[in-house]
Write a protein that binds this DNA or RNA. Structure first.
Lengths: 346, 346
DNA sequence: TGCAGCTACGCAAACGTTTTCGTGTTGACA
DNA sequence: TGTCAACACGAAAACGTTTGCGTAGCTGCA
């Protein structure tokens, strides 16, 4: 087994100095053509590749960006990552992943682990626990040390950094407007508790759409789901709530859910109660994922363009790293949403 | 903005040498208690953290493992990653991700990018194109340079390295046996072309199960899907094939598909043709994902225990890195599959 | 007083690179 | 023959650590 070859080894072998080898490989005309070709041939033969770590140490940059997300087994986040990876790779950067699993502690540990020189900057989506605790010291420290952060999707407004968000309010307004325009009169909303920013904004969009159509919102049509670590339990509780809602409010003819799973769950219950989708009840979900595409009937959704979010985040971070933009100027990019009409709307 | 503080800066500030600072921080009793406490207090105040890159260079190990997968927007792979990440983190390692997008070139580039000192070892699943081309030089080179590789799921048998695979044959045999035991007589198989190892093995399991039940396989019941970069097209073609199959073979009462999406597609067509699931036709899919769990009716599947695969892969790699096992001894771990009975089987 | 031995620290090398600067040799030209 | 430029290369520093070894200064004992 031949170990990795270094400049020093080449130098020794060819009886020249390390600096000569280095210069020869970079084709410096300081070195005679003779020596250059000799060195280059030797390097090629032994498959020489400069050691990245040494370069990082010397250049004070690693050409690696750190991504911290709450979970990876999630269509949205994995799409964002693929966007980040695409843009990063095309600009010569690597991507290193940390998972917070929605835990504050793991988020802090991951950030500390990566902030000590391993990476040049962060792209992250804040964990739910952090949002709940409102403890942002780790973000402040990182930024203070001169390491740029780009937050996406779940951001903290009060922190001065670049952000990429989707227009949650407008997106859900689009969805609800679509339902209204197609003739729905009594639209139920399935959302999360308000402390999840995203849930709150999407609720606002729902309300605004109703208002524009001069429809008075009824709180009895709104389910605010309490999130649970155990998804099974969360969904079971939701099933009961939806079932009760449909039993009580017989006039419901539209459902808007802030995520795919809630929408699928609602659809399941509705179907089991004999409703025809979309004739009796139309359904739209926020977040476009695999479930929506392949459910039967396939679900109409608001797409968040996750890949684009990832690309945009990476672009913003790398631009900052390469000083293509001013360091102290922060910017928030809003990604548009798109209504994808499938088979649960008329 | 206070930049990252280094040993040198602390040394200068406290008017001692760098080595003294280093030793003081590591609590070497070579240094007086006085100096130690002084240095430690100062370091704490300025939030000193040793630079990882410098450590990596010195120690010749990065405590980072590279993972290369064909795609990340895929339930199975993202689950594997979460398993890797969990095990790696708990042992103090970082995880850096590369995506090959099923392309040979991207796989090679990713490996070369990471192999130059950025990581200590690889965990990877081979891209389809590589399997097709059968060009494995990049794997050989990496291993030759002394960098260990663990392959999972899509492995290359002829390469000497650790492997983690699922028992594809036994898994699909379990599925088909279940169908047979529940009374199915004419079981269709939806699989991939044989050059995808996984598809081949799963086909074998199907055949073995039939054989054990003294049922003669009929090639007219088998659909071998030609994979397509464009999933939409692939699925559309599949829809037509399934439709034709069901029209021609009226006696089909069971379907086994080698992945979720094929199963869902089959189910969709069957339902549209008026079949009752599972009364008229039972369905089982390999690979347990979100689709199966939340489809209506929910799909019975063979679970591959992806998280466990990830954990196991990481364990094997790190054990090798930390020389807890012999370097030249390679081992193939077989992960068990489990039948998860849901609503598409009787 | 002289010396052994201990304490507490600094020096320097090492990891692999890149780059600046210095220098020996050669050749040309006055 | 003397001077100078051009050429081709080497030495050394730098990035931030860790660690083996050397040593100055002191204490204590003969």
């Amino acid at each position: 087994m031949k170990r990795k070859v270094t400049l020093k080894q080449i130098a020794r072998e060819l009886d020249v100095s390390v600096s000569t080898v280095s210069k020869a490989l970079r084709n410096s005309k300081e070195i005679s053509l003779d020596t250059r070709t000799k060195v280059q041939a030797f390097a090629k033969l032994y498959n020489y590749r400069p050691n990245n770590i040494a370069l990082s140490l010397k250049n004070k940059r690693t050409k690696t960006i750190g991504v911290i997300i709450p979970e990876i087994v999630h269509h949205f986040f994995s799409k964002v990552i693929s966007g980040i990876e695409k843009e990063a790779n095309s600009r010569g950067y690597n991507v290193i992943i940390g998972l917070s699993n929605e835990s504050f502690d793991k988020e802090v540990i991951n950030i500390e682990m990566l902030a000590n020189g391993s990476i040049d900057g962060f792209i992250l989506s804040v964990s739910k626990e952090t949002l709940l605790l409102q403890d942002y010291h780790h973000f402040y420290e990182t930024i203070n040390q001169g390491m740029p952060i780009v937050m996406f999707d779940r951001v903290v407004n009060e922190i001065a950094c670049d952000k990429v968000v989707v227009d949650d309010k407008l997106g859900s307004k689009k969805a609800v407007t679509k339902l209204l325009d197609s003739g729905c009169k009594n639209i139920a909303l399935i959302t999360t508790k308000d402390y999840v920013n995203v849930g709150k904004l999407r609720t606002q969009g729902y309300l605004e759409a109703l208002e524009e159509h001069k429809i008075y919102p009824k709180s009895s049509l709104i389910i605010k789901v309490e999130e649970n670590k155990d998804k099974e339990v969360e969904i079971e509780t939701l099933e009961e709530e939806i079932s009760a809602l449909l039993d009580k409010e017989k006039t419901i003819d539209g459902i808007f859910a802030v995520n795919e799973l809630y929408a699928i769950t609602a659809m399941k219950i509705a179907i089991s109660k004999g409703y025809k989708i979309p004739d009796d009840i139309s359904i739209i979900a926020f977040t476009d994922g695999v479930l929506s595409k392949h459910s039967i009937p396939s679900l109409s959704t608001i797409s968040q363009h996750a890949v684009e979010m990832g690309e945009k985040s990476a672009t913003m971070l790398i631009d900052k790293l390469e000083e293509l933009v001013e360091e102290e100027k922060y910017h928030t990019e809003v990604i548009n949403t798109t209504l994808i009409e499938r088979d649960t709307t008329r």
